[in-house]
Nucleic acid binder design. Sequence first.
DNA 1: CTTAGGTGCATTTTATACACTAGATACGTA
DNA 2: TACGTATCTAGTGTATAAAATGCACCTAAG
Lengths: 145, 145
Amino acid sequence: MTLSEKDFNYVQKSIVEVQRSGRSIRKIFAAYYDEDVDIGWEVDAAVDAFEMFSSRWTIEILAALYIAGDRRFNELRTLLRGISSRTLSDKLTTCQEHGLVERVVEEGPPIRVTYRLTTHGRTCGRLLGPLVAYMKTHKELIESE
Amino acid sequence: MTLSEKDFNYVQKSIVEVQRSGRSIRKIFAAYYDEDVDIGWEVDAAVDAFEMFSSRWTIEILAALYIAGDRRFNELRTLLRGISSRTLSDKLTTCQEHGLVERVVEEGPPIRVTYRLTTHGRTCGRLLGPLVAYMKTHKELIESE
DNA sequence: CTTAGGTGCATTTTATACACTAGATACGTA
DNA sequence: TACGTATCTAGTGTATAAAATGCACCTAAG
């Protein structure tokens, strides 16, 4: 089994970039493919990191904006299956404060407000992808017994 | 810049396995390294997937067990910075129901109970790694302005 | 009296339901 | 043409429900 030339070039280029960034090829493949690997984090760092995501809705807002692209307030409300507008409003505010989301106002009337991921927000969204993909193929994890 | 022989062998082996699994090399690199990429998910799938993680503490429990390995009840309580035992107990129950965690009883006395990630749990933990690593290097996202 | 692994219960925090607002245009009709 | 009503967007206010916390307490053996 061999790589297509296109894939080969892509892989070669990526490997060079990854090396330049100081990350280990082995760790990157291992983390993605099949092995548990020490990727240099500690429980404390994880608890810190997830403090913001484990507050209900933050992670869903991020995913919705990442997948669906920039959206307006009521569009988000629909995407998130009817989260209350009160809560959506509050959560969007804290997402802005955390630098994940920016609020773009188009003067009206009617005034329209578009929510957009910042660069950080997009990165976080991207990093969540593999987990969503995994969960999607293992619905037994979602529908509790 | 070239790969060491060890890395080269590892990469080659991994690429073959990834190809056999039907996943695209390009997507794997892109998702890991620097690009936004359509990895075939929809908002609905993401909202489903995160419904369980965005409930407070679930994701932290997963991360703690993944990073620190099997732990007993009170060890988890400490790792999670003093979550109330009431809540930890409830959350561990729902994690078991979702098939992320298993409860291993060593008959006492004193009775000892060890919590351990299932295979699914370990996979989810692994997939969260890159996000934690990213957050760790971008603390400005955690400490809101 | 200690240790491990919890449960019970009152209080506090967080989310929901649902009514309601502003500011401007659009529509119906006398 | 003028008048009233209806609609749209992006929220806010407030009462209620759900979830997390703090702290006391339980069991069972050494």
